[in-house]
Design a protein around this nucleic acid. Structure first.
Lengths: 353, 353
DNA sequence: TTGAAAGCGCTAACAA
DNA sequence: TTGTTAGCGCTTTCAA
């Protein structure tokens, strides 16, 4: 009853041309008279016909769908990161005539992705995070499905894009150290994630850097001050906890740190940082006077907190967009850069003053 | 190079049967000899062939995709609700052989949904929220796309499913009133959302109810107490703020309420409640001693807070699953109930003690 | 510049 | 019980 059921054949018939002509007019491929072309396009516009993408896809062995792989784990999935990323991807895909199909996977179960691949429902895939031992990546490679990974991976064959977490964490840590804070601690989540490892390295590099500088300074001083510098090094040795999951663990860690052995706690995401702030508050430890805090992502999770929290901000929507753009280029047969690093923004706030 | 490119024709040929036979063996439709059937299925299993769903779809005018419509607004999209919902939907869909295609829409721009519909990429749609003036609903109706709405709407033609927010809010409010709290306030977000209206009504009904009871009690007393009861009524008149968006507004509201005119603030979602707790903390108002607080959703947003917050918990994954189940039944041509109300769980916690 | 015809991989009458 | 034959709506050689 709608124009909906109109086909390329109907148009051809009423216009007295062949289906081929109509097809050509729309795609712009192949020679076609400017006149007839206009005639067809006008008709199409007037009756707002839109072609059946499924049929088109069948003929071209394309689907005009891209798959987006999301974590299906309970707590992880809630992070605002994935939603923002989805926005970027879906906008970019939409602008290019693609739709986004989702597959929610866990470390153990990637059946949704496997199904989408086996059913040939997608032309390519965007992974929204990477694991050290990534079943999704294996699946995609085995089936020759083009994909790009948001996040980093050691596998050089993988087209990957991410914010520069290593540098971000190094700069953040460095800035805090520059402010005169000596004793830092780092708390992070899943150690299987490559970001976690990257941030850890950034953190450690900054700490080591500062130690080196002090050593230099120490040496200069040492000529008059003897062993004083020796102790400074030790103090810069920074404790790290990974695979931290719930508030119980955080409580315990904060308990251990609160004895004055540490001056600033860097958390690897806003959820963890929230738990840290919470634990501190419970112990009546004032931020930033008695303990400083810094975090990653700068999401709404911390927005509603008492003190503005020093944080790294990533433009996640842009990340999603760029990732999608990369995938599109791959689908178009272009060669693309294997590794893209996006920037970040350091937001120094009251929590580390 | 993979078995991937195998078609029903190849199988038919190597097995010396017709394509129809293979098709029948797989679908179970039409008569077919138990023997040949087994032969075909065995072959398929052995070579792990999986049929081309696109081609199948074209032949049946089906896509085996359902659309999921998500809010593309910035702050809203971050709510954990949608992620959980997505999990439920995608699990159920997957189990039934469907994939999930996403469309992110805003109040002004539903172009992604329109595209998916125009391109016939989806067999049906699940809306994850409803607006009073809903462009998505209009679009779906106009194009005869089957859909179910998560959330409520006045439109009786729409198949809708939701948790019973009205009762939930009424019970929550009632419980708090029963505890002897007199003066309540309600803070909510977008007044355009039907849930907002429902919760408001629940709140007001509970307040009115309690007033009525007091009136009854008041009358009994009145014989000896004169005008005392008169005042009690006035105190139960509860202030309501809707369309509250950011921390600035919340700060202002809490400032007004903190003069002792109100004993408990009910927030319509965890984000708002977080802002309220924040504002209270800033003013050194102790929860629950000086001000009680209650919220909706019981999400991780509040999990990392000092005090456990009284809240309504909804099983959102279940909601998504059920919604998807409903849609599947509609797609199968079944008649389904127009309105499904799911339960909730009242979690009374320290914040209202 | 245009059109006819053969597919894309599958389903579904209709025969056999 | 099985096979034949048309399609589904579009693209794409290959001729004209």
């Amino acid at each position: 009853m709608e124009e909906k059921k109109m086909t390329i054949g109907d148009i051809a018939q009423t216009l007295g041309v062949s289906k081929t002509t109509v097809s050509r007019a729309m795609s712009g491929k192949g020679r076609i008279g400017e006149e007839t072309r206009k005639k067809v396009l006008d008709y199409i516009a007037e009756h707002n016909y839109s072609p059946n993408v499924i049929a088109k896809g069948l003929a071209q062995s394309k689907t005009y769908n891209i798959g987006m792989v999301l974590p299906g784990d309970y707590n992880v999935a809630e992070l605002p990161f994935f939603q923002k990323c989805m926005l970027g991807i879906s906008r970019e895909a939409s602008a290019r005539g693609y739709d986004v199909l989702i597959s929610m996977v866990t470390k153990e179960d990637i059946s949704q992705l496997e199904r989408a691949v086996a059913n040939r429902k997608i032309d390519g895939v965007i992974l929204t995070r990477t694991l050290t031992e990534d079943a999704s990546i294996r699946c995609l490679k085995e089936n020759d499905v083009p994909f790009v990974a948001i996040g980093s991976t050691a596998d050089d064959e993988v087209v990957q894009i991410d914010n520069d977490h290593l540098r971000a964490c190094r700069e953040l840590t460095g800035k805090i150290l520059e402010q005169g804070v000596r004793k830092l601690a780092l708390i992070g989540g899943d150690g299987n994630l490559i970001v976690t490892a990257d941030r850890l390295r950034g953190f450690q590099e900054a700490v080591a850097d500062s130690r080196k500088k002090e050593k230099g300074a120490g040496k200069a001083e040492a000529e008059g001050a003897g062993k004083a510098s020796e102790k400074a090094h030790v103090e810069t040795e920074a404790p790290v906890w990974l695979n931290v999951e719930d508030s119980r663990e955080v409580e315990e860690i904060v308990g251990q740190l609160a004895d004055g052995s540490v001056e600033c706690i860097v958390s690897m995401d806003d959820y963890l940082c929230g738990l840290v702030l919470n634990a501190l508050q419970r112990r009546q430890i004032a931020v930033p006077e008695q303990m400083k805090a810094a975090s990653f992502y700068d999401s709404t999770l911390l927005e509603s907190r008492m003190i503005p929290v020093t944080s790294i901000r990533f433009d996640v929507e842009e990340l999603g967009k760029k990732a999608c753009g990369l995938l599109m280029r791959i689908l178009d047969g272009e060669e693309v850069e294997r590794r893209t690093l996006l920037g970040y923004e350091l937001c120094m706030r009251r929590s580390t003053q």
